[in-house]
Simulated scan of single mutants.
Amino acid sequence: MAPIPLLVLNPLDADRLARIAEGGFTPHVALGPEARAQAIASMPDLRCVLTNGATGFTAAEMDRLPKLGIICAIAVGTENIDVAAARARGIVVTHGPGTNAPSVADHAMALTLALLRDIPRLDAAVKSGEWMGVRWPRPMVSGRRLGILGLGEIGAMIAARAQGGFGMEIAYHNRRPREGVPHRWLPSVQALAEWAEVLLIAAPGGAATRHLVDAAALDALGPQGYLVNIGRGSVVDQEALITALRANRIAGAAIDVVDGEPEVPDAMRALPNLIITPHIAGRSPESILATASMVVANLQAHFAGKPVLTPVA
């Protein structure tokens, strides 16, 4: 069978592009609005698209591709893909749950440790010639209360690492309690923030979760509390976070996601009690190849007339 053209809308490294090509698909990479529009216009018979939650795919774009049959999100998020419009058209939408979950959970713990132990500032201080003047005590991670907002697959992996490795006490908030979960469920974000010493966000993006962590939640977390976000930047009211950090209304924050990324507000760059990494939690060599393999498996199943492995629920 001849390779099937695949429109790719987000940056992929050479290894993932090679994995897609090995699977029987020819990737056509179109990055940015102009290239994307040109590619859609020039490929009217296109049958498959690869995107991610941040890049998305709109109903209007689907309407320009009458033969489109499947949209694959390379990671778990689908917040900017019009899933309802796809369903109305009979277009299958898949994503990649679990492919990068261990990597994200590892990074969440790394951020938590770096934040409480103040690793970035200590490193910078020693490299600038300081030593004795920065050796004041930093909080332990072990034994602290960890509140997880969004106990899905990633949240559960974080809980296992935090409890098993550091003896942390775990509570969580989802819209409803999860069956078979040993951790304490709290009925609101506010209640979780009041209870927690570290509030860790592992919730997806989208309208339903926008600004779940607002000024009131940050005040509930309090001046001894820490915020870690490896979910989506939109879950946190960013201006409220900047204000809280400036005023030391919370002790500090570590985030892998920014609302409006890759743009980072100047006000955030200037905060000494904020650690930022560039949405890299899920990017390990192992997880990167796993995401491409999942995309290929879903595409192969679809074009063989079989059920896809990971449809969007």
Rank of each mutant, 00 (worst) to 15 (best):
H95F: 04
P33Y: 04
E61L: 06
E179Y: 00
L241Y: 11
G205E: 01
L289A: 14
E261C: 05
I4Y: 11
D256I: 12
M268K: 01
A292V: 09
M1I: 11
V213N: 09
G32F: 07
A196R: 08
R121K: 12
V134R: 14
A37W: 07
A208Q: 11
R178N: 14
A281D: 06
A215V: 11
L113M: 01
L199T: 06
G233H: 11
V228D: 13
A75K: 07
V189H: 04
R64D: 02
A39G: 09
D266T: 05
S188Y: 02
H173A: 07
T26E: 15
L113D: 03
A21F: 01
N174R: 06
T99L: 10
A86P: 08
E61P: 00
V213I: 14
R16C: 13
F303W: 13
G305K: 12
M294A: 15
M140Y: 09
E179Q: 15
D15I: 02
Y226G: 03
L68C: 07
V198E: 08
T94E: 08
L9W: 13
G205M: 02
T291I: 12
V92G: 04
A14F: 05
K306Y: 06
P44W: 07
T112Y: 00
I20F: 03
L151G: 09
L111S: 02
M1W: 10
I255E: 12
L12R: 13
P3T: 14
A41Y: 09
A220N: 10
G98Y: 10
L199W: 12
L113G: 00
N174V: 04
R246V: 01
A202R: 07
Y172A: 01
R210N: 09
N298F: 05
G129K: 15
A75V: 03
E261I: 03
L113Q: 04
A73N: 15
E179F: 02
V104P: 12
G155W: 05
Y226K: 07
L245H: 00
R117M: 05
D63I: 00
D15P: 00
T209I: 01
A88G: 14
L241R: 10
A84W: 01
F166D: 11
V235C: 05
S284R: 06
T243L: 07
G260M: 13
N174S: 11
T26V: 09
N273I: 02
H28W: 08
P27I: 04
Y172C: 06
M157F: 07
E169K: 14
V308Y: 00
I230G: 07
H28A: 15
R117P: 02
P182N: 12
A124Y: 10
I4R: 15
G56A: 08
L111C: 06
A254I: 11
S284G: 09
L149Q: 09
A191S: 10
P223D: 03
L115S: 03
E286L: 14
H107I: 07
L65P: 03
T112I: 03
A21D: 13
E197L: 09
D63F: 00
L68P: 10
R178W: 04
G98P: 02
V141Y: 06
G129T: 13
S103Q: 09
L212W: 13
R19P: 01
I74Y: 07
G23V: 01
L12C: 11
E197I: 06
A196W: 09
M140G: 05
W185N: 06
G147V: 12
H107L: 04
R249L: 01
Q38Y: 00
G90S: 13
M62D: 05
T94W: 05
R283A: 14
L149M: 15
G180E: 09
